[in-house]
């Protein structure tokens, strides 16, 4: 049977992708930021997951204002990197896992999560930057990916608690897939950042670090954080952290923190990254 073995959370800042693509990760500005992912790259090479369920948000790339799905799951064979206005990233195509994705989609709908099903789309930095951070610059990505896109742009996005429950339902769905697969779930985005208005540039290290800490120490607190708290404390784009709770919800009660990294700034944003191992 398929099983979720670990959860990974990471920021997905577009400039991280650019730094990787242009081989700038050794420059002074980037060295400390990327160094926090060195351990992760070694760990992923040992873990060799078969599939990553990659929770992210689209940034006006595949979805415009015509259609705004709250939760969408990619069931396609493959996805191309999106042209976000400056040409697509030169990274490999993302290979899907349609059998697992359709299985999860069907289970979620019966479990009362009414998913939008996507067969064709391009994937933007929200999805491809985490792949670069975890795997570097391979000729092909070493995993298959089930994209899970969440609306965190048009209000209201889903609540943190709803995200958590979706994660629980994803775990149940994966566990009923008959093929023997090592599956990781990644939650991406965050941490504190605001990209708009006179308050742009807001960073809240204290709040971010308490969030990282409570992913293991007090996850029940995180489920109940209202949108207004994310907005006031972590900037208008910090709301992306509700996507980390899908990852956390999928791991169950017992997790062990394996690795953590926090760095300010990358562009306008606080970089946060954590690896949680699922325990029985």
């Amino acid at each position: 049977m398929a099983r979720i073995t670990a959860g990974v959370a990471s920021s997905h800042i577009p400039l991280l992708g650019l730094a990787s693509d242009l081989n700038k990760t050794g420059e002074d500005y980037w060295r400390a930021c990327f160094a926090g992912y060195d351990w992760t790259k070694r760990w992923e090479a040992e873990q060799r997951p078969d599939v990553v369920i990659l929770v992210y948000n689209d940034h006006a790339s595949a979805f415009d204002m015509k259609i705004i799905p709250t939760f969408a799951i990619g069931c396609g064979e493959r996805y191309k990197p999106a042209d976000e206005g400056w040409g697509p990233r030169h990274v490999p195509d993302v290979i899907g896992h349609p059998d697992l994705a359709w299985h999860v989609a069907q289970c979620l709908i019966l479990d009362e999560f009414d998913m939008t099903i996507i067969n064709e789309m391009d994937v933007d930095h929200g999805l491809t930057v985490p792949l670069s951070m975890m795997f570097g610059k391979p000729a092909e990505w070493p995993v298959r990916v089930v994209p899970l896109a969440v609306n965190v742009v048009t209000y209201p996005p889903p609540t943190g608690n709803r995200c958590w429950k979706l994660g629980e339902a994803i775990a149940r769905a994966v566990e009923s897939f008959p093929e023997d697969l090592n599956v990781q779930i990644w939650g991406t985005g965050g941490m504190s950042h605001q990209l708009q208005g006179p308050r742009a540039g807001l960073i809240n290290k204290e709040w971010d670090n308490r969030f990282l800490e409570d992913l293991t120490a007090n996850p029940e607190r995180l489920r109940q954080i209202p949108h207004i708290e994310y907005l006031r404390e972590t900037g208008s784009e910090g709301i992306e952290m509700v996507m980390w709770l899908i990852m956390r919800g999928a791991l169950g009660a017992n997790v062990k923190e394996l690795h953590r990294h926090y760095h300010v700034p990358a562009s306008n944003t606080a970089v946060g990254h954590i690896i949680l191992e699922k325990r029985p």
Partner: peptide, 9 residues
Amino acid sequence: MMLAGGRSP
């Protein structure tokens, strides 16, 4: 400002 840790909340 960003290099110095960003805008305080």
